[in-house]
Amino acid sequence: MFAQKNKSSHCIFMALICLLALYVGQVNAVWYEAKGQAIIMKGDKHSARKAATEEALKQALLFAGASINSVQQLTNGLLESEDITISSTGEVNQVELVDEVWHSDYVTVTIRADIFPKEQICKASEYTKHVASSYFSVANREHLLDGQIADFPAAFTRHLATLMDTHGTYAKLSYIAPYTTYWSPSTLPANVRELAKVADAQFVLVGEITDLSVTREPPSRLAFWADEDATRYFAFDVAVYDGLNGGKLFQRTYQTQDTWPFDRFAELDEYSQSFWSTAYGKAIDKQVAKFIVDLEETTSCQPLTGRVLQANNTNVTVSLGRDNGVMPNDELYIYQTRQFTDGRGETYLQYNIYPGVFIVESAYSNSAQVRHKDANVIINIQENDFVIKK
C-alpha cells in the first residue's frame, strides 16, 4: 500500500493508489487501483462521476509514470461505455470500474487501470524542483470591488503554493516574493534570472489574473423578494520560465465560472477556508489542478539544477539538498555560463562545464557539500556557478 495523500471528503484531488499485481498476463504491464472524489455541484451527478473518475485515473497514470497528453481525452472516451471499461493500444491498456459510492454531497469512484509505464522514465523526475513567483497581477482591479477582495491576487498565489505542496509531485512553489511584479517584455528574462537567484529556485512562474468579473441576474417582478442570481468568472494566464537562462517553457490560460453566493457589498476574507470551500473556490481549484499537471509534465524531466553557494580549494557547497532528493554519494556536475554577442548583435548563452564529476559528501535540507571525484584540489569554481544532477 502506498502512502496516501492528505484526505478530505470534499477534495477532488484525493486518490489512494494500490499496486494489485505485477506482470500479470502481459509483459511490463501493472495493475493500479485508485480512488477519486468529486463534489456534486447543483445536483449534477454525471459531472461529479466524470470528475472523480478523471482524478482517479490521473493519479494512477502519474504514479505509474505513464505519459499522456490529456487525461481528459481518455476519460471522455472511458465514460462513453456503460461499464467504464476501455481497451487501448497505448500506455493504458484497460480501465475498469471497481466501485462508486454516492454520499450526500460527493461521490467516490474506484477504478482499476492496466498501465504500461514509460519505456524510459527520466531520472530527473526523482528530484523535487523548486519554483519561485511573485504575487500574480490582476488585469482589472475593478473586478476586486465585488466582495471587497482587494487581496485576492496575493491570496490566490499563496493558495496555489499550498495546492502545489499538497498535491504536486515534482515541483514545489517554495518562494513567493511579497509583492506584485509587472513584468516588462524587455527586462523579463533578466528579472526571471534574478528572482530565481534570490529564491534558489530552478523555475519561475509569471502569472496574471485576467478575469474576476461578476454577472448578476435580478429576480423577476413576480418573485421580487428572491435573491438575484450571480455568476463569477475566473481566468488566469501563467507562463513558466527557466530560472537559469530566462527562457519560456510554456504559457497557458485557465478559466472557469460558478455560482457566486455573496452580496456585492459583502466584505470577504479571501484567505479563509470558508471562501475556498465555496463552489466558486472549488471551480478555481480544479483549474489549478490542471495547471499543476501541465507544470509537472513540463518540468519533471528537466535536469535538477542549483547554484554554488561557496567554494574553496577542496570543498564546494551547493544549493541542492535533501529537500530536492539529493543524497550522499550522488554525482553532480558543475558548470559556468556567460553571455556573448555575435557580429550581428545576437546574444547567446555559453555553457562551460568544469571537468569531472563531483560526489555529494554531506546532504542537508537545502544544501550539500561536494568534492571532486578524482582531484584533491578544486580551482576556478566560483560562487553562483551552476550545479546539475542528471
Rank of each mutant, 00 (worst) to 15 (best):
F275R: 02
T166W: 01
L222D: 14
V138P: 07
F13E: 05
E296Q: 02
N315H: 15
H143Q: 14
T166E: 13
H103Y: 05
T299C: 11
A190Q: 10
R252F: 12
D285I: 01
R158V: 01
T278C: 04
R232L: 01
A154P: 03
A124S: 13
H130K: 06
V318W: 11
T314E: 15
L309R: 13
R264L: 10
V387Y: 07
I149Q: 12
A266R: 00
A201K: 01
S88N: 03
D269A: 08
V30G: 11
P153R: 00
V30Y: 15
I379K: 13
W31L: 12
N6H: 06
K50G: 02
I292D: 05
N324Q: 08
Q94P: 02
L79F: 10
A21W: 04
G306F: 07
D237T: 13
P328M: 12
P303C: 08
L20Y: 10
V326H: 09
E91R: 06
L349V: 15
N352E: 05
S133I: 02
I292Q: 05
I176Q: 01
N366A: 15
R371S: 15
R158L: 02
T256D: 12
W31H: 11
V27R: 08
E208S: 10
L332Q: 05
R344V: 13
A56T: 08
E361A: 12
G281W: 12
S220L: 09
F236Q: 01
K123N: 08
V240G: 06
S367K: 13
H130D: 06
L332I: 12
N140C: 03
T231F: 03
K129N: 01
K129Y: 02
G246K: 01
V27W: 04
T85C: 06
D99F: 06
H130F: 13
L304R: 02
W225Y: 07
E96C: 09
H372N: 10
T108G: 01
K45N: 13
R193H: 00
T256I: 06
A226T: 09
Q273Y: 03
D105R: 00
Q382T: 14
I84S: 05
Y280S: 04
D211Q: 08
W260H: 00
S9T: 07
S365P: 11
I84K: 12
E142F: 10
G306Y: 07
Q302A: 13
D258G: 05
D294E: 05
Y179N: 07
T215Q: 15
E126R: 12
N76F: 13
Q148F: 11
D146W: 14
N380R: 12
E82Q: 10
I284K: 05
T259E: 04
Q302W: 12
R158H: 09
S104D: 13
K390M: 10
R49E: 10
